[in-house]
Design a protein around this nucleic acid. Structure first.
Lengths: 166, 166
DNA sequence: CGAATATATTTTAGGCTTGAAATATGTCGT
DNA sequence: ACGACATATTTCAAGCCTAAAATATATTCG
């Protein structure tokens, strides 16, 4: 089955270094390109940024009850300190507000009415932009790409987990 | 052929908004996760960063003659100002040096001997890390993912180009 | 109760990144 | 030569991001 049996393929059909590097380069190129496009649009059309949009998006999904700083930090995969600064800027813009809570260690935040309105407009535009960027793909390719990326995600996480147990 | 013919699929089989959004989310999740892993390793094991590594990598490929600031900026897809700062830090570390040139507007830089040594060590480790992160994928899946990402890249660029001609 | 520990967040210092303005140099046409 | 334009880079202000230390509050256990 395996061609070139002279070379031991220790990982049983897993991609080798060069192949992996090429894959990583493609992945990075795509996501950087998309980020730069979306970021420019958000700035030009809404005077906002991707991190702000991401935080508003998390709060939008959370609804009335909002989220704690820690929850936002975990959802956005960024540091706690980062969320602190982001929240301060969004609050200064009047897009989010603090909620009182029993445990005085936790800061719970949610969208204001204006934040909700503004996010909804941005989200609609955002969806169209992304759709446009992938318009050159067939529906089947997009679906397959999503599935393969899911596999990649699992591979990354299991490698990460394995390492922390070393 | 197309099921659910009641809904007009205006883009002829292109992914719709939700599907595209899901794809984008997966793409971003994967590349963020990888970046964070690699970044942590580069910091812990080499006291370096991803942007520094990227710049060294570009200079490594360029060889003796080095690259101008503008060339680095284009290769790394970052702003000119960014490269200026990066170069200053790498020079302070003794990893790169300036080359004299005829046109006094251009700054040409290349790796020092130390920069070359250091980069080679980092690149070797980097390749292993990436290989490890994708080890959970079969070789075939990795290959297919790479191909599909190539298609995605083309789609993104053509959307970008189309927009600038609007 | 009170001390040790755990949890949630903010602060801090430093690096990365951008777009726009400023600077410096080269080139081209007259 | 010289003015106008083009090219290459740096500077600047502001935002994003991180890890580590500091702060504040809650919980647990002796």
């Amino acid at each position: 089955m395996t061609p070139g049996a002279a070379m031991p393929d220790r990982l049983g059909g897993a991609p080798d270094g060069k192949r992996s590097l090429r894959l990583w380069l493609r992945l990075l190129t795509c996501s950087t390109a998309i980020e730069q496009r979306i970021s420019a649009r958000l700035r030009d059309e809404f005077g906002s940024t991707l991190p702000r949009f991401d935080m508003l998006s998390a709060l939008d999904r959370a609804g009335e009850a909002g989220l704690t700083m820690g929850e936002v930090s975990r959802m956005l995969m960024v540091s706690n300190g980062n969320v602190t600064g982001l929240a301060q800027r969004l609050k200064a813009d009047g897009l989010i507000e603090h909620l009182p809570g029993a445990d005085r260690r936790v800061q719970r935040v949610r969208l204001t009415a204006e934040g909700q309105t503004r996010f909804t407009a941005m989200a609609r535009a955002h969806e169209h932009w992304i759709e446009g960027l992938f318009a050159g793909l067939t529906d089947g390719d997009a679906e397959e790409l999503t599935t393969l990326l899911d596999g990649a995600k699992r591979s990354i996480h299991s490698a990460a987990h394995e390492e922390s147990n070393r």
